[in-house]
Simulated scan of single mutants.
Amino acid sequence: MEQRAAERKLTEKGLATRGRIIEGAVREVRARGVAATTLDDVRNATRTSKSQLFHYFPEGKAGLLLAVAHWEADRVLADQQPYLDELTSWEAWEAWRDVVVRRYREQGQQCPLSTLLSGIGRSEPESRDIVVGLLSSWQNRLAAGIRSMRDQGEIGAGVDVDRSAAALLAGLQGGVVVMLATGSVTHLEIALDSAIEQLRASAA
């Protein structure tokens, strides 16, 4: 909350500078890991002076990592749009499935959520709250799509919307974990295909 309030007080130029620093920090964290990334690494990568960096992030590394966590969390959901918020037909579900697989195939080890969970999400309570909020928002959007399809009669009336959304998200993340370990998106594809097929079959 404090991060968002601070952003609202900045000028357009200030927001651009702050954003440039955050994006540079994102690249450094992904390349080096949370623990190994220093403020000097970020300063050198973004050609930012020490005084300028602390102007935008007076809490130092902790504040910068919190901003990185916000940036990564926002990207996870943004990468799935507009499909994630328009799951109102089976064609839309297939389009969402395809964009998720494509994004993870392209991102590989640079997966935003893996960056959050592997270090930033465990470093500070505020960062963990960002991860929890991200997963909650993601699940709620999937639930909205399932509910829409159930209301249309495309999914069985007896389907538990929230449990189905939770299972779908858990399966997706399980596929991502396997992908990070093996480099293959096969398990992710199977998890998504199986979940969607199960939802479709529920109306039979």
Rank of each mutant, 00 (worst) to 15 (best):
residue 66 L to W: 09
residue 70 H to V: 02
residue 76 V to Q: 01
residue 83 Y to R: 12
residue 87 L to C: 06
residue 88 T to K: 12
residue 93 W to L: 13
residue 94 E to S: 07
residue 96 W to V: 08
residue 102 R to K: 12
residue 103 R to H: 14
residue 104 Y to E: 15
residue 104 Y to C: 07
residue 105 R to Y: 04
residue 105 R to H: 13
residue 106 E to M: 05
residue 107 Q to V: 01
residue 108 G to E: 07
residue 108 G to V: 10
residue 109 Q to A: 11
residue 109 Q to G: 05
residue 113 L to E: 12
residue 114 S to W: 14
residue 114 S to H: 12
residue 115 T to R: 13
residue 115 T to V: 07
residue 117 L to T: 14
residue 117 L to P: 00
residue 118 S to L: 04
residue 120 I to G: 04
residue 122 R to A: 11
residue 123 S to I: 00
residue 125 P to M: 03
residue 125 P to Q: 08
residue 129 D to M: 07
residue 130 I to S: 09
residue 133 G to R: 05
residue 135 L to C: 09
residue 140 N to M: 10
residue 140 N to R: 13
residue 142 L to V: 04
residue 144 A to D: 15
residue 144 A to I: 01
residue 145 G to Q: 05
residue 146 I to W: 00
residue 148 S to I: 00
residue 148 S to G: 14
residue 149 M to A: 03
residue 150 R to Y: 00
residue 153 G to P: 12
residue 153 G to T: 09
residue 154 E to I: 00
residue 155 I to D: 03
residue 155 I to E: 05
residue 155 I to V: 15
residue 157 A to G: 14
residue 159 V to E: 01
residue 162 D to Y: 06
residue 166 A to C: 10
residue 168 L to K: 00
residue 175 G to C: 05
residue 175 G to M: 03
residue 176 V to C: 08
residue 176 V to I: 13
residue 176 V to R: 14
